[in-house]
Design a protein around this nucleic acid. Structure first.
Length: 571
RNA sequence: GCGAGCGUAGUGUAGUGGUUAUCACCCCACGUUGCCAACGUGGGAACCCGGGUUCAAAUCCCGGCGCUCGCACCA
């Protein structure tokens, strides 16, 4: 991943600061690593990326947006596994100062590592004589838990309940699964989406927007019946892109459709979401030749995942994971069901044909069992119900779990025989989750859009952002700031600005060429110029950023053309 | 978290103990020009923070914060 021209990244970063796209946050107080500000242009781009993302998924009909808190009680994150995962014990080799996860060092030496206390882990390192993988010595510091979640407390004083700022938005969708299930009238598949901030207290954030401590995520949890994995036609199944399957580790160029046919993508629903992700990120302005899908190896994959692909984008920082598409199976819902003891986290599957199940078993007569066995009564009742072989008549003997044999006499049980019709069953839905790192995607669409050139001997920079992710749709310019051109331009800008969804800038400062250049650098796709002729026939010139070409266009047509992205038709 | 380098207007920079802190782009006003970063005049804007050394610190020293790189970490 050789960095290209390193000066390019500096010039791009420079533009981003100068133009008010992204800058380090709290800079006047020295800044805080891993926190950034989006300025006026950047915030507009970010808004549009998020809106495009939401519109894309919402338009499929079976996916709806939800919103949940960023403050998350500890129990939720215990169930999801985040609290356990985040309290990894770290230890330092005093000899060479390398830092390691203590539990990883002990793997293979100690059983039930998860059950050990920090003290026990520390002493185990010495007792087992674990050597430092770096320098080969055995001289470990105390193991200290490292928590990558921001911890807080809900409520005042010592009675506060422990909570964390969410490390992912996904848990919000799992919490709302019962509500979504009802909303979709108990029919799967369906999905919930959410965008918002997530927080990770990174040890040392680097690489600008790539590793942030507070960042915008956009996640989709798509719930479905694992026996009928859904696959849709939408998405981009046919464009050949780079794929890195884990089996070979080699880059191969093929379409999503081919990758599924060849068995590289293991799960059809995962393939569907890869195809949709491809279509979506390209529409945001990602260059498909600088995109690849990389499959996680077995060792890299979370234990519950059966197939996981990252969408990586290539930019000034090399290949960066920007979207993770994982089959999380039933893991999260099952965990929440288990930890809460509730039956909300499941779905009903109707059989195609209802089945008739013959019931033929002995049922305890509680009014007799109770007085006869007192404390043992419930164990006896259970034993009667659990009988594998059905005795023909009373009395008979049952064996309790602890081995005690009990004689069941006349009147203590009765035999029932019936045909029960079973129309379906409960199951825990599976989940495919595409998780998008919005900030990383924004960085890459800026990187891919940024083009440097030379125009009449001067350096010239253009951000070739698609209109839908450009900070403004158009800039309105009076050719000269007088003779009525100024008034007319202001009127056009004001009128267009009122149109829902359109963002318009007005610029009357300096020469026309300079204003075009400014707009190019800000990524504004269209420039509307009011000139002498405009005053006579209500036409304006329309300039296309990407090639500088101009056509005349009636003022009356501007609004609908801009709103429908139809201006290209004029060229 | 460790090691090395770095931190000057919005941006890019000059400045090795005493400057009114350099230059360019930039931004504003006025004039001028009259469709692709023109020009003139005037104006605006900076030494990361804190402590120390010194008569005097942007400059030397210490600490903090931040950035870059390497090591480590990154559910």
């Amino acid at each position: 991943m050789a960095r290209g021209d390193s000066g390019r990244m500096e010039r791009l970063s420079s533009i981003m600061r100068r133009r008010g796209i992204v800058a380090p946050a709290f800079e006047t107080y020295g800044g805080v690593a891993g926190l950034v500000d989006y300025g006026p242009l950047g915030a507009s781009i970010r808004r549009r990326v998020i809106d495009t993302w939401i519109d894309y998924w919402s338009s499929s009909g079976d996916i709806l947006e939800i919103e949940s808190p960023t403050i998350t009680p500890e129990e939720v994150l215990v169930a999801s596994g985040h609290v356990g995962e985040f309290n990894d014990l770290m230890t330092t080799c005093k000899s060479c100062e390398s830092v390691f996860r203590a539990d990883h060092l002990l793997e293979g030496f100690v059983e039930d590592i998860d059950g050990l206390s920090p003290d026990e882990i520390s002493s185990s390192l010495a007792k087992e004589g674990i050597v430092c993988p770096g320098c080969g010595k055995t001289d470990w510091s105390e193991s200290v838990p490292m928590n990558l979640m921001f911890k807080t407390s809900v409520g005042a004083m010592s009675r506060g309940r422990t909570a964390y700022l969410r490390p992912e938005t996904a848990q919000g969708m799992f919490m709302q699964y019962p509500m979504l299930y009802r909303h979709f009238r108990q029919k799967l598949p369906f999905g919930g989406i959410q965008t918002g901030k997530g927080y990770r207290n990174e040890i040392s954030p680097r690489q600008g927007m790539i590793r942030l401590r507070e960042f915008t995520m956009a996640e989709l949890e798509y719930f479905f019946d694992p026996e009928e994995p859904p696959v849709g036609k939408d998405g981009d199944w046919s464009t050949a892109v780079q794929m890195v399957p884990s089996s070979t580790g080699q880059i191969a160029t093929m379409s999503v459709s081919e990758a599924l046919d060849k068995g590289l993508i293991l799960h059809p629903t995962v393939a569907w979401f890869i195809a949709r992700t491809l279509e979506l990120v390209v529409s945001l302005g990602v260059d498909s030749s600088r995109l690849r899908f990389r499959q996680h190896g077995q060792d890299e994959m979370a234990h519950y995942a059966s197939d996981c692909w990252d969408c990586e984008l290539h930019g000034e920082h090399g290949w960066i994971e920007c979207v993770g598409i994982a089959n999380r199976t039933c893991h999260d819902l099952e965990q929440h069901a288990m930890h809460t003891g509730k039956s909300d986290f499941r779905a009903w599957r109707s059989f195609k044909e209802s089945k008739t199940v013959k019931i033929d078993k002995w049922f305890p007569v509680q009014s007799s069992i109770g007085p006869s066995f007192k404390g043992l009564a419930s164990a006896v009742s259970k034993a009667i119900g659990d009988l594998d072989e059905i005795p023909e008549s009373l009395p008979f003997t049952v064996t309790l779990d602890d081995g005690t044999e009990i004689s069941i006499d006349e009147g203590m049980a009765e035999r029932r025989t019936e045909d029960r019709i079973v129309t379906g069953e409960w199951y825990t839905p599976h989940v495919v989750e595409p998780a998008f790192g919005i900030d990383r995607i924004i960085w890459h669409i800026l990187d891919h859009a940024y083009e440097e050139g030379v125009k009449e001997g001067e350096h010239y920079a253009v951000l070739r952002l698609p209109q839908k992710t450009a900070p403004f749709d158009a800039v309105v310019l009076p050719l000269f700031d007088k003779d009525g051109m100024d008034d007319m331009a202001e009127t056009i800008a004001a009128t267009l600005s009122k149109v829902r969804g359109l963002k318009i800038q007005y610029d009357n400062s300096k020469s026309i060429g300079r204003r075009y250049a400014r707009a190019d650098e800000a990524g504004i796709p269209w420039a509307i110029t009011v000139d002498h002729q405009s005053l006579e026939d209500s036409s304006v010139t329309l300039r296309r950023r990407d090639d500088g070409r101009q056509v005349r266009c009636s003022v009356a047509d501007l609004q609908s053309m801009l709103s429908s992205y139809g201006l290209d038709m004029l060229f």
